[in-house]
Design a binder for these strands. Sequence first.
DNA 1: ATAGATGCAAATATTTTGCCGCCAG
DNA 2: CTGGCGGCAAAATATTTGCATCTAT
Lengths: 162, 162
Amino acid sequence: MSGTPLHRVSTGERINVNAASGHLQRELKARRIRLTRQRRVVLQVMESAAHHMDANEILDLAQKIDSKITRVTVYRTLDLLKGHGLIDELDLLHLRGHRHYYESHGPRDHIHVACIQCGKVREFESDLYEELKRQISRDCAIEITVTRTEVGGLCAECRAKA
Amino acid sequence: MSGTPLHRVSTGERINVNAASGHLQRELKARRIRLTRQRRVVLQVMESAAHHMDANEILDLAQKIDSKITRVTVYRTLDLLKGHGLIDELDLLHLRGHRHYYESHGPRDHIHVACIQCGKVREFESDLYEELKRQISRDCAIEITVTRTEVGGLCAECRAKA
DNA sequence: ATAGATGCAAATATTTTGCCGCCAG
DNA sequence: CTGGCGGCAAAATATTTGCATCTAT
């Protein structure tokens, strides 16, 4: 895993430096997982994501690249990636209904901080978070493979308006 | 809010000291929210919960108390409680499918630590977590109203078996 | 060649909504 | 009394599965 950083902006949009680097494709290849035409397309969509996407958005984008891709394949590919720990599944505190969002993750975990009013999502990294995970791992005697932290509240902007 | 502690055991079962104390009912009354027969039953189920429940389990338990309660009422009541911040909604990392789990929460947030193998869920409290939230609040200029942290991994027991 | 992937359609699962009669306050 | 609530049925959403066919390796 390269130490390539993930750049974040306050709108929740993401500029993934790994974009188009074929990072996910390399990971699958290393695991000897069959790379089909359809999978390549979904991987490309995930890698070039500008924000968290739900299955429907991923399907739409994938079909722009290759119109023959079906929803079922998207679900199956997301399951595959999730199973190998290459993407995370979030629900952003259900602020926008009960759909699920997916993102390919960089080398370091981040926290999702969402405004319950305007819906903006910001990604946040913290050494304290890393320390907390170490504490959990030690105290619960668990070998952590996946973590997810979502925080909701009122952002400064929305508080000013109120 | 009382400072009544929440006792935790490693199986993810909960012994909520607030159980049967009518805690939720008092909260609703204070907000001048109509207390119907059905709502009382759902509140009772939530308060005496021994573990995280999905909507279906809540319905089953509620119907044991009053067989005339419908699924729709359960959903509407859960929405009501969620909207007032009296219960939390989790998905436990989708370890058991895509359902949602609900729990009435005590005065202090806790982290859910789940084994991806055996499915046991343990609740974990930590000062470090409180500190992390303060950091997020400060650095993101957000007034936090809800947080959720879920951690998955292999518990000691499952690692021993492998 | 062949294990494993895809596509199609249908099945599941979960949650939400419209409408009307009923009840808590 | 009356506005909010619950029940029913149906809709909307989201995800999964069986099976025949195709394809990456």
